[in-house]
C-alpha cells in the first residue's frame, strides 16, 4: 500500500488505477442543509442522473466512500463531526464543497455559530459556488474532478490548487 502513496507505481499501473477511480467514485450519502436537496436532485432524480458519470451515491458509511460532498452550512457544533467523518474515509479521498455556506459562510457570514469555510477543517478539491448551486453545477464539478483524477499523480495530490467551477 505504501507504494501508492509514495508515487512509485509504474506508469501503466497508475493510469489503470486512475481510470478505475475516475469511474467508480462512491459518494457518501450525507446531507447538511439546503444544498443537500439540490444534491439529492442531482443524485436521486431521473432528470440529472449522476450514475451515468460513474458516480455511485449509495454508501451510508464513510468507510465505503471515495468522495464526500459538503452540502450546506457547517456550524461550529457540526465541525468536529465533519472532520471525524472525513478522517474515517479511506485514501484516496476527495471533497467537494458545495454552496456558499460551505465555502465561506454564505448568507451567514456574520453569524456567531457558523464555521466560515469548511476548508478550515478539511482539504477541499472542488468548489461549486451558488446558493444553492443548481444540480448541473454540481455535475460539472464532478466532471472536472474526474478529469483531474484521470491524470493524477499521488505525489502532487496535496500540493495542487483546488478546482473552482465557474
Amino acid at each position: 500500500m505504501g507504494l501508492v502513496e509514495n508515487g512509485k507505481m509504474p506508469k501503466p499501473l497508475t493510469a489503470l488505477l486512475n481510470i478505475s477511480r475516475k469511474y467508480s467514485l462512491w459518494v457518501y450519502q450525507w446531507g447538511l442543509a439546503c444544498c443537500a436537496m439540490e444534491m439529492g436532485a442531482a443524485f436521486a432524480s431521473p432528470r440529472y442522473d449522476v450514475m451515468r458519470l460513474g458516480v455511485i451515491p449509495f454508501p451510508a458509511s464513510p468507510r465505503q466512500a471515495d468522495m464526500v460532498v459538503i452540502s450546506g452550512t457547517v456550524t461550529d457544533k457540526m465541525a468536529p463531526v465533519v472532520r471525524r467523518l472525513y478522517e474515517q474515509m479511506p485514501e484516496p479521498k476527495y471533497v467537494i464543497s458545495m454552496g456558499s455556506c460551505a465555502h465561506c459562510g454564505g448568507p451567514y457570514w456574520d453569524s456567531y455559530s457558523v464555521t466560515k469555510g469548511v476548508d478550515q477543517i478539511v482539504p477541499v478539491d472542488v468548489y461549486v459556488p451558488g446558493c444553492p448551486p443548481r444540480p448541473e453545477a454540481l455535475l460539472e464539478g464532478i466532471v472536472l474532478l474526474q478529469e483531474r483524477i484521470a491524470s493524477e499523480d499521488m505525489t502532487d495530490r496535496w500540493t495542487r490548487d483546488p478546482i473552482v467551477v465557474s
Binding site: 452550512t73 456550524t75 457544533k77 457540526m78 451567514y108 456574520d110 453569524s111 456567531y112
Partner: peptide, 13 residues
C-alpha cells in the same frame, strides 16, 4: 443545534 445558524440574531442586523 447542529444546524443552528442564529437567524433571530442575524435578522436584527
Amino acid at each position: 443545534g447542529y444546524m443552528h445558524r442564529g437567524y433571530e440574531k442575524l435578522a436584527e442586523v
